[in-house]
Amino acid sequence: MKATIIVKPKKGVLDPQGNAIKKVAENYFGVIFGEIRSGKYFEVEIEHENAKNIIEQLASKILSNEIIEDYEIIYESRNS
């Protein structure tokens, strides 16, 4: 099984990197952006009968810190 895990700062948590990118982008394009939030991206491969459960725990217990981050898991369909 393959999955993509995206970890991003929780709403309301300061994201200094996103803010810096926003400033540069606004200067470059001469337009005003709403928020730009930066996060992390992980690609995971695992063959196991409990794969989904393990990936869920990987995302919640290791890859993200629930105090400051949210995560999203996108499973890759088998026939792709």
Partner: peptide, 17 residues
């Protein structure tokens, strides 16, 4: 200690990066 939840909160990147 924060990651271990022995203390509350988290330490994030300095505001000036």
């Amino acid at each position: 200690l924060c990651e271990l939840h022995l203390l509350d909160g988290a330490l994030i990147t300095n505001v000036n990066l």
